[in-house]
Each structure stands twice: as structure tokens, then as C-alpha cells.
């Protein structure tokens, strides 16, 4: 295991948002390595660049400077198509507001990442989606629509969706931010269990110190820089 490259390595990352009037330094010389099987939480006040960091880790955006390596390979100068392919294969996302498509059933939502995978038949997609729903304990809800589910259930569907593609890493941006503490607790327990029992690598942004302390490592940010 030690010889395997880290799932993600960010080196000297700087991200500057340039708008017409102002320039915002969202991230400043960030260095972060995420190893296989790790559960890392990221904490920091609002606006300190946590979502920006996740968008870079998720290959949704490019840093102003610095390098991002996925499985030991730098992704600088990758095309839109190559980045999309990498996201599809290696990365699962979980968002604060779930981002489920309301007009698709639970199972159709979970199939979404598989829809963008070349050469996968509809039967296999369905099987994988159901297996992922099984992992989050929602296999009885496949035909429901998001509006028929509670917030916690919706977030579990979103986690199943992130799992369905068999990613190397799940990036979760405040996954319990819209949930009450009981449901939030459920989600954290689910993520911990997936990490522990299935070996899924997870990076999670959270405001909740209790949650963060349950993970293996806490990275703190302030104003675009790591502070611990």
C-alpha cells in the first residue's frame, strides 16, 4: 500500500477568481495529499475557499497555479473530454443540497454517472444502481421520486449516486448542511461505515467539529490558507 501513489496530491495550489472589478484570492499555496482509504475532513469559516478546494480536487475547475495529481499523474493540460472522463471514473460528488434531479426516479438518479460511461449497457447500469442503493439502505425506494423522500434519504440517494460509478474518492461539500442533527448523524455514520468497511476514500467539508473529529484527519483553512 505504501508504494501506491496517493489518490490526490495538490502541490502549491493557488486559485484566484478574477472578476471585472475585483480579484479574489480563494486559495493560497495549498499543499494537500489524500491517500487511499483515508477519510479527511476540511474545516474553516464560510468563504475561506473550501468549496473552491473541492472543485479543484474534483477536476471541476483549474488552479491558477500549482499542480493536481490524480493517482500520481498530473492533470495539467488535460482536455475537457479527458477531465470529464476522469471525473466520471474516479470521483464521486456529494453536495449540501443533494442536487437530485426531481423528475427522475431514485434509481434513475443513481444511474446518472453511469450514463456517461462508455459502453455500459442499461442492464448493468440498473444492477449497479440498485447495488449502490442497497449500500445506503434504500433498495426499497428505487421507484420513488426525490420529492417523496426526507432530506436524509435524499442525501443517501446522492451518496448512492456517488458510489454507483465505483469512484476512488468521494468529495462531499457540507453533506449534512441542510439536515437536522439526527439525520446529519445518520449521514456521517453512513460515510464512516463506507470508509471503514468498503475502503472508500472520502474528503468532506464540514462546519461541525464533532463530525470532523470522527474522521482520521482534519485540515483547517482560514482565508484561503491551510492553518493545520
Amino acid at each position: 500500500m505504501t508504494s501506491a501513489p496517493p489518490v490526490l496530491r495538490l502541490t502549491n495550489i493557488e486559485k484566484i477568481y478574477q472578476t471585472k472589478t475585483i480579484e479574489t484570492v480563494a486559495l493560497n499555496s495549498v499543499n494537500l495529499t489524500v491517500n487511499r482509504g483515508e477519510f479527511v475532513s476540511i474545516m474553516g469559516p464560510s468563504g475561506c475557499g473550501k468549496s473552491t478546494l473541492l472543485s479543484l480536487m474534483g477536476l471541476l475547475d483549474e488552479p491558477t497555479s500549482g499542480t493536481i495529481e490524480v493517482d500520481g499523474r498530473a492533470v495539467t493540460s488535460y482536455s475537457d473530454k479527458e477531465l470529464a472522463g476522469l471525473r466520471n471514473l474516479k470521483i464521486g460528488f456529494v453536495f449540501q443540497s443533494y442536487h437530485l434531479i426531481n423528475d427522475l426516479s431514485v434509481v434513475d438518479n443513481v444511474e446518472l454517472p453511469l450514463l456517461y460511461r462508455r459502453g455500459m449497457g442499461s442492464k448493468e447500469r440498473r444492477q449497479r444502481a440498485i447495488a449502490a442503493l442497497d449500500k445506503v439502505g434504500l433498495s426499497a425506494r428505487t421507484g420513488h421520486f426525490p420529492s417523496q423522500l426526507s432530506g436524509g434519504q435524499r442525501q443517501r440517494v446522492a451518496i448512492a449516486r456517488a458510489l454507483a460509478g465505483g469512484p476512488e474518492i468521494i468529495l462531499a461539500d457540507e453533506p449534512t448542511g441542510n439536515l437536522d442533527s439526527v439525520m446529519g448523524e445518520e449521514i456521517i455514520e453512513l460515510l464512516l461505515e463506507l470508509n471503514r468497511e468498503q475502503g472508500v476514500t472520502i474528503v468532506m467539508v464540514t462546519h461541525d467539529l464533532q463530525q470532523a473529529l470522527k474522521t482520521q484527519r482534519v485540515v483547517r483553512f482560514f482565508d484561503g490558507s491551510q492553518v493545520g
Binding site: 474534483g58 471541476l60 475537457d80 473530454k81 470529464a84 472522463g85 471525473r87 466520471n88 471514473l89 470521483i91 460528488f93 453536495f95 443540497s97 442536487h99 434531479i101 446518472l112 454517472p113 450514463l115 456517461y116 460511461r117 449516486r161 460509478g165
Partner: peptide, 16 residues
Amino acid sequence: RAEIGLRRAMGATGAG
């Protein structure tokens, strides 16, 4: 927009 962002995060290309 959110759905588009989601799909892109899931692996859709811009052209897609």
C-alpha cells in the same frame, strides 16, 4: 444550471 453542473461533475463534457 445546477443540473448542468451536476451532470458535468458526473462526467458529461461541455459538448455532451
